[in-house]
């Protein structure tokens, strides 16, 4: 297949250049420019930031209005070829409820063109990998939310894709399942591109080195997690304040955390300048604070937190 993908340098990256996308008259993506290389790539943003639209465009499920996208050297317009090398786990999905777990996986493998003799082995191997081998004969409707997500990853990997696109995979999972899921993603990212879209900063912190932050259809930041943290250095403070001042502080500053003590509360604040508060201390930035600072410094309205 190498003749399809061009040179080796092109084999393992996704290039997005000046991509615009409209829903009717409403513009959903504005001049998106990104290069995504092998490994985990995090796409962070609030709900409605355009992450899902970008994910679907990369999975050849949406059409862009303008710009260029190449996936491992293939132009996105070659939808069939793109689908052959891409695994996609949508934000909201399920499977035929009365199908057994292994049947559902086998069916989707057949739709991906995996030969029957390979499919049986792959289904067993993948179910083992996502720790569902003991549930292979259970109907899909009998699986828990976390199990369904893991089955979702298995279906996206059944044809051994070069690119895996996962959209908000941990939403609604309990902490244990979330950790298990993140680890699974990191494992599969060893030999392919994995794009993880999420609005949960903890998911990115635990898995990605390269990230992009999106808001209102635009990319606000692209780079490494450490550079994002560095960018926020000098803008994250903590202060101990009396509880009665909390409403006023929340109105005036971007508060990213609060720890209630016996007679005061320690608040974590994102600010351009040192806040005029008692016991205020400049502190090491965390990813959540750095993300909020990025949104704030880009002019986003973040009063009231996430929509």
């Amino acid at each position: 297949m190498s003749f399809l993908f061009g040179g080796d340098n092109m084999n393992n990256c996704i290039e997005i250049k000046n991509v615009n996308k409209f829903y009717g008259k409403k513009q959903a993506l504005f001049d998106i420019d990104l290069t995504i290389e092998q490994g985990m790539f995090g796409l962070l943003g609030r709900n409605g930031a355009g992450k899902t639209t970008l994910m679907k465009t990369l999975a050849a499920l949406h059409q862009k209005k303008s710009g260029e996208i190449t996936v491992c050297g293939l132009p996105i317009e070659k939808a069939k070829d793109i689908r052959a090398i891409t695994g996609y786990l949508p934000q909201e999905f399920s499977m035929y409820p009365n199908m057994k777990t292994d049947e559902a996986l086998d069916y989707l493998g057949a739709l991906s063109g995996v030969p029957a003799n390979e499919r049986k082995k792959k289904v067993t191997a993948l179910l083992r990998r996502v720790n569902l081998i003991d549930h292979r004969h259970k109907k899909v409707k009998e699986l828990s939310g976390g199990m369904k997500r893991r089955l979702g990853i298995a279906q996206a990997l059944i044809h051994d894709p070069k690119v895996l696109i996962v959209d908000e995979p941990t939403a609604g999972l309990d902490p244990e399942e979330r950790i298990r899921f993140r680890n699974l993603l990191c494992e599969v990212a060893e030999d392919r591109i994995v794009i993880l879209s999420t609005h949960i900063v903890g998911d990115i912190e635990a898995t990605c080195e390269q990230i992009a932050i999106m808001d209102e259809g635009k990319v606000l930041w692209r780079g490494t997690v450490s550079s994002l943290l560095e960018n926020a250095r000098g803008h994250i403070y903590t202060a101990n304040v009396e509880k009665r001042f909390l409403p006023q502080i929340k109105r005036e500053f971007i508060v990213t955390g609060m720890i209630a003590q016996s007679d005061y509360t320690t608040v974590r604040i994102v600010s351009d300048a040192e806040p005029d508060l008692p016991n205020v201390v400049l502190t090491e930035p965390d990813l959540e604070g750095a993300y909020m600072y990025c949104l704030h410094s880009s002019g986003c309205d973040i009063s009231g937190g996430e929509e």
């Binding site: 999975a59 050849a60 499920l61 069939k80 689908r83 052959a84 891409t86 695994g87 996609y88 949508p90 909201e92 999905f93 399920s94 499977m95 035929y96 409820p97 989707l108 739709l111 991906s112 063109g113 279906q155 044809h159």
Partner: peptide, 22 residues
């Protein structure tokens, strides 16, 4: 309508099989 009702349509859409064959 089973794909849409089972919320499986996106999984089906993203496969490489041709629409005509399916």
């Amino acid at each position: 309508a089973a794909d849409r009702r089972s919320r499986m349509d996106q999984l089906i859409f993203s496969r490489s099989i041709s629409s005509f064959r399916l």
